[in-house]
Design a protein around this nucleic acid. Structure first.
Length: 842
RNA sequence: GCCGGGAUGGCGAAAUAGGUAGACGCAACAGACUUAAAAUCUGUCGCCCCCUGGGGCAUGCGGGUUCGAGUCCCGCUCCCGGCACCA
């Protein structure tokens, strides 16, 4: 204890001291269980508000605050508005970083880091940090996905999906990350590199578990029940990639069927060659001896090339003729068969009919290798098409030519049967048994296997006698063993854990080996919001009654980076649960809002290596939680994000200090009350109520705070008058605290108490506004002459057009512009402006 | 290349059924209080011209519609994000 400290304390006594009041209220709220949610409360309408749960990285960074604090304000606002709000928080606790820490330790010869211990420690720490934020999370309903009582239900779902064929194992080309030693989903490969490791991804053929998300492709394209940002819906739609077209069966000269998919069956008569993917199974069979060496070499080169290399080859088309020919089913033309890496085995059938006239890639290929081009669509206004003069493929609308039975039909540029020419072609194919209309999707099945330790074990067994056998439900959970030794190579320790590996076959009782792959962690996040409702339920994954009452989630918030992955898997999983009879709704999250990203002060993504990371703990130590929360919400629009600015926080500190002083300091009460002051103050209060209510409803936190600052400024000016004795003043103070409560929960609670109120400010009803209080006696209007602002007038609120015009014309500056001119038009926008249109005389 | 989103003072930003551009805040400048500083309070603050009153120009660039355009239409430039040989 020192004198200076005392003095500082005295000096600051009239200032807001967050370090004193914030811990005080956090303690009080915990003691009184004020954040406890009664999920069985029927009296109020329910509201399930969810924000994406974090990975337990060890510390809340400012991005967590940026994502969560405004969501908390929105949830608090809804609670005051009369809803029973459930706003839970938990941890996405499985995943690579914790395991990598253990592997790193193993490399350094130490073995005292275990992902489980590390993860639980970090979760404890982050839970304490969340409490400092003052969020209304009910911590009695939380979950961690690495808890066996959570992941056993992942396994349970897997078994259900295996039973109905939605989970299956197949050997397929997968993205192998050589650094993380695991397979990655397509979604985790960015520009040919592993999303996490940044390593160049290799193509490997491995047996892997998949979920049949493609069965739901069509339903996933339906967003009609969702209030979601347009761009998220567009991103998912593009990812699913629906293509409307036809599949057509060509025959090789030997008689093999070669099925192709095309969106332009109308151009079939213009097919002058065929291309197979290098991996296509028919390549080997059809290649002629004289082409064998060249084809083999090309196939080998294509297999070795990673995705990024294929792209790096640029626009130049490569390929090899395989010596064989196919027959165009509609006209009997003999066309050469090529292989080329621009045709992908993973899309469509891995084979295409090539129409150089109507497809840019085919055009480039044909030009590269001197293959014929047959024009099949004549654009309007063009009489003659000179093939030699074509610079690029023609993909626009026109009349079909050189196309036998569909000659003269019109391709209007639309997709599928919406184009008469395409419809005619499909009709022709179907009538003659050569093909049929078909829809394909870019979306592929969800690759769920991960060759990692720190995840949910896939509950499957390999029995020498019975083959692939599912674990029985009674044996769940298949526990992840803790006594494992991490390999410096990064290989999963499960592969060497005898006690885990050896199991009894549930079918024959013989010996079986356990699957050592674990599940993609997106499995965990595909149903976690159901589990929040009953985290300790031991006889099933979800509580059907509570789910019926609370699901789906009313508002979900989180980063745009999950626009495709997590959000699409969650939608898929919800539909699967519905089809398994577990729930009866179709969509998990009715309303979605994405926050933008908060960047470092240098306008770059925050990262340790750049040294631009903002530490929220330091900010709180200096300013307190309320200031940090409020500043984050004030800084820029939440859905936009932007760079952190360490200067601006002072403005919010001042705002909260001024609010503190307004409520705690005695009024000067000396000045006179001006005429209309009372009404003006009341107008400002009700205007603020209206604006803040609308802003919080629409997640416009920055403008809500600006409005509160405006109200405070009005009140500070009013405080020096005798207004403070009035009921209007008391209403103003109460309203200010209520409107600010969701944003800055601690200071408002303290001031609510200090201003003599019983109970918590957070248990109060959200204020409503009085429309009539917004009326004014007189209105300011702008006066324009020929659209240019020339003056201002003040007119009585009820003034009619004649009065307004008279007043406008009399305005001294305006009248100057009217002299010597004749008035040709008068425009009055009530309450806004007058525009006088004049023409010079003569 | 295709699909989204964006561009407003020195800075973060407000304002769209077309109607007074720059609310709110930061920074800056000037002043008050103070022995001084901090804090606080008051004032100024888009650019340019001018004598108070005013005037001209301004929402990325160029056109258009309109009495009136940050807002609507056409054509560009740049920035950010997603997808990327998807047949």
């Amino acid at each position: 204890m020192t004198d200076t400290k005392e003095a500082a304390g005295d000096y600051r006594s009239s200032r807001h001291n967050p370090h004193q009041i914030e811990p005080k209220w956090q303690r009080r709220w915990e003691e009184t269980q004020s954040n406890a949610v009664d999920l069985f409360d029927h009296d109020r309408p329910k509201y399930y508000f969810l924000t994406m749960y974090p990975y337990p990285s060890g510390n809340l960074h400012v991005g967590h605050w940026w994502a969560v604090a405004p969501a908390d304000a929105a949830a608090r606002f809804l609670r005051m508005s009369g809803y029973n709000v459930f706003f839970p928080m938990g941890f996405d606790a499985f995943g690579l970083p914790a395991e990598n820490a253990a592997i790193q330790a193993a490399r350094e010869g130490s073995s005292d880091i275990h992902p489980a211990h590390l993860t639980y420690e970090r979760m404890d720490h982050m839970r304490r940090q969340f409490k400092q934020m003052g969020a209304i999370f009910d911590w009695s309903k939380t979950l961690a996905t690495c808890d066996p009582e959570y992941y056993r239900w992942n396994q349970w779902f897997f078994l259900r999906m295996f039973e109905c064929g939605l989970a299956y194992r197949k050997e397929s080309f997968v993205n192998w990350d050589p650094v993380d030693q695991t397979v990655l989903a397509n979604e985790q490969v960015i520009d040919g590199r592993g999303e996490r490791s940044g390593a160049l991804v290799e193509q490997r053929l491995m047996p892997q578990w998949h979920f049949k998300i493609t069965d739901y492709a069509e339903e996933l394209l339906d967003f009609s029940k969702l209030d979601w940002p347009e761009r998220v819906k567009i991103m998912q739609t593009n990812w699913i990639g629906r293509s409307d077209g036809a599949s057509i069966t060509f025959k090789s000269e030997r008689g093999d069927d070669i099925v192709v998919f095309t969106t332009r069956p109308d151009t079939l008569w213009g097919a002058t060659f065929m291309v197979l993917a290098p991996e296509h199974p028919l390549v080997d069979k059809l290649t002629t001896p004289d082409r064998r060496d060249a084809v083999d070499a090309y196939v080998k080169r294509a297999a070795l090339a990673s995705e990024i290399d294929r792209q790096a080859q640029g626009r130049e088309k490569t390929g090899e003729f395989i010596g064989a020919y196919a027959v165009n089913p509609v006209n009997g033309e003999r066309i050469p068969i090529w292989i080329a890496d621009y045709v992908l085995m993973t899309y469509g059938t891995g084979a295409i009919m090539a129409v150089p006239y109507g497809d840019q890639r085919d055009f480039e290929f044909a030009r590269q290798f001197g293959i014929d081009i047959i024009p099949v669509v004549r654009p309007t206004g063009v009489d003659r098409i000179v093939v030699e003069e074509l610079r690029e493929a023609y993909i626009g609308p026109g009349v079909m030519i050189n196309s036998g039975p569909i000659d003269g039909t019109v391709h209007n540029g639309e997709k599928g049967r919406n184009s008469p020419a395409i419809a005619a072609a499909i009709d022709y194919l179907e009538k003659n048994g050569l093909g049929q209309g078909e829809v394909t999707y870019r979306l592929r099945d969800w690759l769920i296997s991960r060759q990692r330790y720190w995840g949910t074990p896939i509950p499957m067994l390999y029995c020498d006698a019975c083959g692939i056998v599912p674990e029985t439900e009674e044996n769940l959970p298949v526990l992840l063993p803790e006594d494992v030794e991490f390999m410096p190579t990064g290989e999963s320790p499960l592969r060497h854990h005898e006690a885990f590996l050896n199991a009894e076959c549930p079918h024959c009782g013989g010996t079986a080996r356990r699957e050592t792959d674990t599940m993609d962690t997106f499995m965990d996040s595909s149903w976690y919001w159901f589990r929040f409702l009953s985290p300790f339920k031991s006889d099933g994954p979800i509580d059907a009654d509570l789910v019926k009452r609370w699901a789906p989630v009313d508002t979900y918030t989180g980063g745009i980076e999950h626009a495709i992955l997590h959000l699409m898997y969650a939608r898929f999983f919800t539909k699967v649960m519905r089809d398994l009879g577990l729930i009866d709704h179709d969509e998990p999250f009715l309303r979605l809002r994405n926050q933008g990203m908060i960047l470092g002060e240098d306008n770059e993504k925050m990262s340790k290596s750049r040294g631009n990371v903002i530490d929220p703990d330091e900010l709180i130590a200096t300013y307190g939680s309320d200031t940090v929360r409020t500043y984050l919400m004030f800084l820029f629009p939440w859905d936009q994000g932007g760079p952190w600015n360490s200067q601006g926080i002072e403005g919010v500190t001042r705002f909260l200090n001024r609010t503190w002083a307004l409520v705690t300091e005695p009024a000067a009460n000396s000045g006179p009350t001006g005429y209309g002051d009372l009404k003006e103050l009341r107008r400002a209060v009700h205007h603020a109520i209206r604006e803040v209510t609308e802003d919080l409803r629409g997640f416009s936190f920055n403008t809500a705070i600006a409005e509160l600052m405006t109200l405070l400024n009005v009140m500070v000016r009013a405080k020096s008058t005798s207004l403070v004795e009035t009921a209007v003043w008391r209403e103003a103070v109460e309203s200010l605290l209520l409107l600010l409560a969701p944003i800055a929960p601690h200071i408002t609670e303290e001031l609510w108490e200090r201003s003599g109120h019983e109970g918590s400010v957070h248990d109060q009803s959200w204020p409503g506004y009085d429309e009539t209080a917004l009326d004014t006696d007189s209105i300011n209007m702008a006066v324009q002459v020929n659209g240019k602002l020339r003056g201002q007038i003040t007119v009585p609120a009820g003034a009619d057009e004649v009065e307004v015009l008279a007043s406008a014309k009399a305005e001294h500056n305006v009248s100057r512009y009217l002299e010597g001119s004749s008035l040709v038009r008068e425009i009055v926008v009530p309450g806004r402006l007058v525009n006088l249109v004049v023409k010079p005389n003569g």
